[in-house]
């Protein structure tokens, strides 16, 4: 499952309205709800928060990849949020996070989940590409950038 198969403008939000970590997680899950990709916001949010409680998925260099498995979804779901001003996400480098990739997977779909996470990890290695995403002016521009990469 390629990341771009999951990517439509409806699951991208820039800029995010949230100003702190709990609100970022809620807003990312809300993106999926608003896009009609999930029904049960509370269950998904709880699963994301539980994973986040073990260790922050703020990788450093301005990127975070919150993720979880939950039976509340039947297939892999992706949401992207961008906060150009940066948000404190308890990142490993203690720097503000600007780029958030949320991945929610069904428990029996570990293969596509691992592939999508690996793809995000590869994307996140390019500082220039991440900067271009953060500068994007619209959800469509984010989609075009990722599809054109």
């Amino acid at each position: 499952m390629a990341l771009i198969d999951l990517l439509v403008p409806e699951v991208v939000k820039t800029p995010l309205e949230a100003k702190d970590k709990p609100d970022v997680l809620r807003e990312l899950v809300q993106i999926l709800k608003d896009a009609g990709q999930i029904d049960d916001l509370d269950t998904v949010l709880k699963a994301v928060q539980e994973r986040e409680d073990k260790q922050s998925t703020g990788l450093g260099a301005g990127v975070a990849v919150p993720h979880c498995k939950t039976p509340a979804v039947k297939s892999l779901k992706l949401a992207i949020g961008i906060a150009p001003e940066g948000i404190d996400f308890d990142s490993l480098d203690h720097e503000p996070t600007t780029l958030f990739f949320l991945l929610v997977a069904a428990p029996d779909q570990s293969g596509p989940h691992v592939e999508a996470l690996a793809e995000i990890a590869r994307l996140a290695r390019s500082k220039a590409f991440c900067q271009a995403l953060v500068r994007a002016q619209s959800a469509q521009e984010v989609v075009d950038l990722i599809k054109g990469e």
């Binding site: 073990k54 260790q55 998925t57 990788l59 450093g60 990849v65 993720h67 490993l92 428990p107 029996d108 570990s110 293969g111 989940h113 691992v114 592939e115 996470l117 690996a118 995000i120 990890a121 996140a124």
Partner: peptide, 24 residues
């Protein structure tokens, strides 16, 4: 290999890596 990369990138915790490997 992908799971090792995710562990190195700190996207996975070590117990998460083991859980996913078991699932796969």
């Amino acid at each position: 290999r992908a799971m090792e990369d995710l562990l190195k990138a700190r996207i996975f915790l070590s117990d998460e890596e083991a859980e996913y490997e078991h699932d796969l």
